[in-house]
Design a protein around this nucleic acid. Structure first.
Length: 290
DNA sequence: AGCAGCGTCCGGCCGC
DNA sequence: TGCGGCCGGACGCTG
């Protein structure tokens, strides 16, 4: 599943392919059209399929950046600016191809839901096996208020003090630390994989209450998360389950994970345990993590 | 007002 | 082999 490092990899590969190109036409899968027609918010969020198709035509992609786990595509049409926000959910993937036959893996080719045909004839293809992803066309970021509530980028200077300020708030005091570090308003981009890794490295039990961790240890935890995110970016992200980079490329971080998905602790060979925190499975070593 | 809890968006995959 | 249940980012709704 794509977290911040995986999205960063997508953006780095996608941006040079997409910037400067103009959308000629949009094709939406029958499945999404039908789901939307029944009133569900399937992939295309906040507007009808017809409106999305109509508005996206003639849009020129002028920039592609990452914000937390979101891909932000700055668009222009005439004198107006727009923002297309793409979240990959559990299984979203972008492909830059000349024909959908070039989407080589069957399971991605079978779940192509939005095709952007560009004026030069090329295709920007959005595939999403489980349809948890989103495409949201906005005028400005503020038109979707939850985006404004995201924590700063973890690599920004202010991210550390922001993290400490929020993590010390009474409303987080009794929460499991893993839930706190996976809250995108506290620190952005840290999902299940990297939260699991950071807590293992810090030898902190995932259910430990936030208030039971000193300010000093919280600071250390913050920088461990940042370091792991950076290490993963450098490794090309983790290719787990349905995550692929542009055009199906895999990353290398999955081979460097020390706890996520493990049955046995690498430090002490104790069997790992798992517990559900905030609805998600959390793996930990009962001996190393306290 | 703010928040906890749950439903929603799904198909791959696992275990029986 | 067939099938029920599990899994999960982030938002929206409800109480």
């Amino acid at each position: 599943m794509p977290e911040l490092p995986e999205v960063e990899g997508v953006v780095r590969a996608f941006a040079p392919e997409a910037i400067g190109r103009t959308v000629s036409d949009i094709t939406v899968s029958d499945i999404v059209i039908e789901s939307k027609a029944q009133g569900r918010e399937a992939i295309i969020k906040g507007m009808s399929t017809a409106d999305f198709i109509q508005q996206m035509k003639k849009m020129t992609i002028v920039n592609v950046t990452r914000r937390s786990k979101y891909i932000y595509m700055n668009l222009q049409k005439g004198n107006n600016d727009y923002l297309l926000v793409s979240h990959l959910g559990m299984s979203g993937a972008w492909f830059v191809v000349n024909s959908i036959d070039e989407v080589s893996e069957l399971k991605f080719r079978r779940h192509i839901h939005v095709i952007f045909t560009m004026e030069d004839g090329g295709l920007l293809v959005y595939s999403d096996i489980r349809r948890f992803g989103e495409l949201r066309l906005l005028n400005v970021e503020a038109d979707h208020p939850p985006l404004l509530k995201m924590a700063p980028e973890p690599f920004d200077e202010i991210a550390h003090s922001h993290f400490l300020d929020l993590a010390q708030l009474p409303k987080y005091a009794e929460k499991p630390i893993k839930e706190v570090i996976m809250d995108g308003q506290v620190i952005s981009g840290c999902g299940n994989i990297y939260a699991t890794e950071a807590l293992f490295k810090m030898k902190i039990h995932p259910t430990r209450k936030a208030r039971r961790i000193s300010l000093k240890r919280k600071t250390e935890l913050f920088y461990v998360i940042v370091d792991i995110l950076q290490e993963s970016i450098d490794a090309g992200g983790s290719t787990i389950s349905d995550y692929r980079n542009i055009n199906g490329e895999s990353g290398g971080m999955q081979n460097r994970l020390k706890m996520y998905g493990r049955k046995v602790c690498l430090n002490c060979e104790t069997d790992t345990k798992s517990v559900r925190i905030a609805g998600r499975t959390s793996v930990y070593c009962p001996k190393c993590q306290r």
